[in-house]
């Protein structure tokens, strides 16, 4: 099937090309290995994926961070815990005394060899971001696999027990909501209230913030959209909801993404599309140069409509 044309294209829609304005967040994708295979996963992660960041690239990342006072280190995957060198890498990152975020699927923290991460995260005061698509068990399980919901609740309970998400502890636990189908997320504030009330009442668990993230038409989610003949309608909904006010804060403006092979990308989405940074900026961590990267022109495509629809979407949820 021919790809339906997106009209107007994202490039046509923008008044001027998108440009970075510094690097506040250094996002590192440790690889595509994950114990789940969620149906919306733009990474198409799974237990058999072999792509993992090498020790050499990890060392290059640490060196870049040592030389440049980039305030936030954002670690993602797959689920980062499944990288065998992650405990070492986390200790090294912690020694740099930056804000550290780990994006985890949560349920991995209940599995034998990975349970020590619960204490490790608390010890290094890592901000934990857990994917939690819905407060409805059926919806979550449909998206992420049978039995995931109850394991998620258990994982959040264990994080809560260590102080995560509890007022005054300073241990931050944020949840991520993704729509469980071919529609856009609702307003973050409304959903956050709903989550807070439902999770407290049903399970007695707490969290700090809810980030609502629009599903990107990439990876497994794209396959789902096409298979169910929702692609065109979904893209039209994104284009119709384009909000120029979001362009100020799309995450590529302030972050840089490092792939498992050391290549540099404007964001994790471009990483999955194989679109490295361009327009004169160095495309591999070996050639890291803050000046040219901090002001680079962003490589965009029609998937960028996912970041700019409605209230916008980023790794931290709404942006406008």
């Amino acid at each position: 099937m021919d790809e339906p044309r997106i009209h107007p294209s994202f490039e046509q829609k923008m008044a001027a090309p998108l440009k970075a304005e510094g690097i506040d967040t250094f996002q590192i994708n440790l690889g595509y290995r994950c114990n789940l295979e969620c149906r919306h996963c733009h990474v198409e992660a799974g237990p058999n994926r072999r792509e993992l960041l090498s020790r050499a690239v990890m060392e290059m990342c640490l060196q870049v961070l040592q030389c440049h006072p980039i305030p936030t280190i954002d670690i993602t995957g797959g689920t980062p815990e499944m990288h065998p060198d992650f405990p070492w890498f986390l200790e090294e990152c912690a020694a740099l005394d930056r804000r550290i975020l780990v994006r985890t699927n949560g349920v991995i923290l209940l599995e034998g060899p990975y349970t020590p991460f619960l204490n490790l995260y608390a010890k290094h005061r890592v901000e934990v971001v857990v994917s939690f698509p819905h407060v409805d068990m059926k919806m979550t399980n449909r998206q992420r696999g049978e039995g995931v919901y109850s394991r998620l609740i258990e994982a959040v309970r264990m994080l809560n027990a260590r102080g995560y998400g509890q007022p005054g502890s300073g241990l931050i636990l944020n949840l991520v909501h993704n729509p469980s189908g071919a529609y856009l997320p609702g307003l973050q504030n409304s959903l956050e209230n709903h989550y807070r009330q439902a999770l407290k009442e049903k399970h007695g668990i707490v969290f700090n913030q809810l980030f609502c993230i629009t599903n990107m038409p990439i990876g497994r989610y794209l396959t789902f959209l096409k298979k169910t003949e929702n692609y065109e309608e979904y893209m039209t909904a994104l284009v119709n909801a384009f909000n120029p006010a979001t362009l100020e804060s799309v995450m590529c403006k302030y972050s840089l993404s490092v792939g498992w092979d050391g290549k540099l990308y404007d964001c994790d989405f471009n990483q999955m599309l194989g679109m490295t940074v361009n327009h004169g900026a160095p495309e591999h961590i070996e050639m890291f140069d803050l000046n040219s990267l901090a002001n680079r022109r962003i490589v965009t495509g029609n998937h960028c409509y996912g970041c700019t629809a409605g209230a916008g979407s980023s790794c931290r949820g709404e942006i406008a």
Partner: peptide, 11 residues
């Protein structure tokens, strides 16, 4: 229907 789904309303 879309708005309800977006706001996390169950079936």
């Amino acid at each position: 229907t879309n708005q309800c789904l977006s706001l996390g309303v169950s079936q």
